[in-house]
Amino acid sequence: MQREENDLETSKDGEIRKLLNSMDQVEAPDGFERRVFDRIASADKPFGFDRTMLLLGLKFSVPAVVLIVLGVFLVYFNAKTPDTAQLPEVIDTFTENTGPMPQSPATNTTTTTVSGTSQTELAAAENRTNSNAERPGANRNANGQRTGGGSEDMAVSPSGDPLYPPGINPNIRLSPETAPTKGSIAPSSILAILGIKSACSSVGCSVTGVQANSIGSRAGIMTGDLVEAIDDWPIDSNHTFSGSVNVRILRINRDGRTITVELKMR
């Protein structure tokens, strides 16, 4: 076997082997055996276990114990119900003191504190409950029972009107009377921009011609139409506009019928 192995090695390999073999052998120091036995005595198996096994056990058992303690802690505090001994007392006191249910938190100014909870807060909470019961956005069947599903609009008042921030109501539109109609731009000039030639009178502007491929022609304005309003602002020979005018819709009268035409800018 040794001979076969040596056959496998080239002469250069033999040189390396010879060189490595020529190195001095290192010896163990004196007292080596005694120190080994000392180490064996100091590392003797505790409790009959191998030390490595003990360390391995600790490596896994310590995190496991921590997780178990944490789990027990969470379960205990999640399962712990609130102290209900005081809850009936608070409600009873509220009923006795206030009588009928207040309509809104704003009208109930009673602030008598009962067991740390003010009656104002209780009234507000109860009022919110009542509001939820009458919320118009809630899904209900014909009997008024909740059917579940869907979402409820929280921005509604008990009366059903939507609630918006103060000063903002998107439903309010400018009335023609409040429109800024006093200016230097005549309605006929606006219509001319749209490719509509017109003659304005006290009832509106009568279309006398429509330029081909203009905005007016694409919107279907025809000669003979009577333009009564631009964006709901009534126009006549006396109306003029100021500033920028946002022209989107024309109201015209064609053969006695009022038609609303939406302009296409492209």
């Binding site: 290192v26 120190r35 080994v36 064996i40």
Partner: peptide, 22 residues
């Protein structure tokens, strides 16, 4: 020869016999 450190080699040699014993 592997570690090129005599003190470390002696220490690991002793540890080797300790491992063998256990």
């Amino acid at each position: 020869r592997f570690l090129n450190d005599y003190e470390e080699a002696v220490d690991l040699a002793q540890e080797t016999f300790v491992r063998v014993y256990f």
